[in-house]
């Protein structure tokens, strides 16, 4: 049924820290690996070793340059996957009932056996979270690794989405965002977690933690305590270069 549940018992989702993400793309690779070998149709590639490679990914990392009014520009790496919106527009447009949002945990999933591959859900998503698989001809999206997080065959430490498990800089956190006492909710409260495109009215569950203010080395006077020891010992070239310098000066 593609009508949305009136409420969900939990809101499982991700909190992504834009301050600590180093843009290594490990989450992209681990996501592709896990989701190619497990739940649903594999994430195919087209012409992977040819001149025009392309493929299906559920998680991608953009990089942005942010230029403040004064001071140095800042580079922000920006992982983006399904935000498992409370008011998911991708679900309600689905004509077949293949797209659905689960009442028990809020995860947005696609029943690939019912997907006709019309692509309308990808049009409805403002975040580009859904990609049609060109081999299976069905819509693929982040499942929040639904086949890991409830999987009793895995050690408990592995029962988180593959992207969270693999992140070397701890920039991705997984938990229940409906519980104000959960680690992720506290992180969102402490760091001012934000919604992407709030004006679209999607009410995303996933939150993004903004980058912390950068040190301003150009404006702090006390940063160079070692500077006297680092002063150049000589600023006059010697030997051949010294001769060349003097010779050129005389010209």
């Amino acid at each position: 049924m593609t009508t949305l549940p009136d409420r969900t018992e939990r809101k499982l989702g991700l909190v992504i820290d834009l301050d600590t993400c180093v843009g290594c793309h490990a989450c992209v690779v681990s996501c592709k690996g896990w989701n190619t070998q497990n739940y649903g149709a594999p994430l195919s590639d087209q012409d992977p070793y040819g001149a025009d490679p392309s493929g299906t990914f559920l998680n991608r990392v953009h990089s942005y340059e942010v230029q403040p009014e004064a001071g140095a520009a800042q580079l922000v790496h920006f992982p983006k996957s399904c935000l498992h919106c409370d008011n998911a527009p991708c679900v309600t447009v689905c004509p077949t009932g293949a797209s659905y949002k689960r009442r028990e945990d809020g995860i947005v999933l696609v029943n690939e056996d019912a997907c006709i591959g019309c692509g309308l859900c990808a049009w409805a998503c403002p975040y580009g979270a859904r990609e049609m698989d060109m081999a299976a001809k069905v819509m693929k999206k982040c499942t929040l690794c639904v086949d890991r997080i409830y999987n009793d065959n895995l050690p408990e430490v592995d029962r988180v989405p593959a992207c969270v498990r693999t992140c070397p800089s701890n920039a991705r956190h997984f938990g229940d965002l409906s519980d104000p006492d959960s680690d992720v909710s506290q992180l969102v409260a402490a760091r001012g977690g934000m919604d992407l495109m709030p004006e679209q009215g999607t009410a995303p569950v996933n939150k993004y933690l903004p980058p912390r203010p950068k040190d301003r080395l150009d404006q702090t006077g006390d940063i160079d305590v070692l500077a006297p020891f680092l002063a150049p010992v000589t600023d006059q070239p010697k030997g051949f270069l010294g001769w060349l310098d003097k010779a050129l000066d005389r010209l």
Binding site: R60, Y64, K80, L196, P198
Partner: peptide, 27 residues
């Protein structure tokens, strides 16, 4: 609003996530 980074300064796409085309760009 898409990146939530507007509060810091003006946002410019620095590097896309993939060098080739993908479904999103084509569609």
């Amino acid at each position: 609003s898409a990146t939530g980074l507007g509060g810091i300064g003006s946002v410019r796409a620095f590097e896309p996530p993939h060098t080739g085309p993908n479904y999103l760009l084509r569609e």
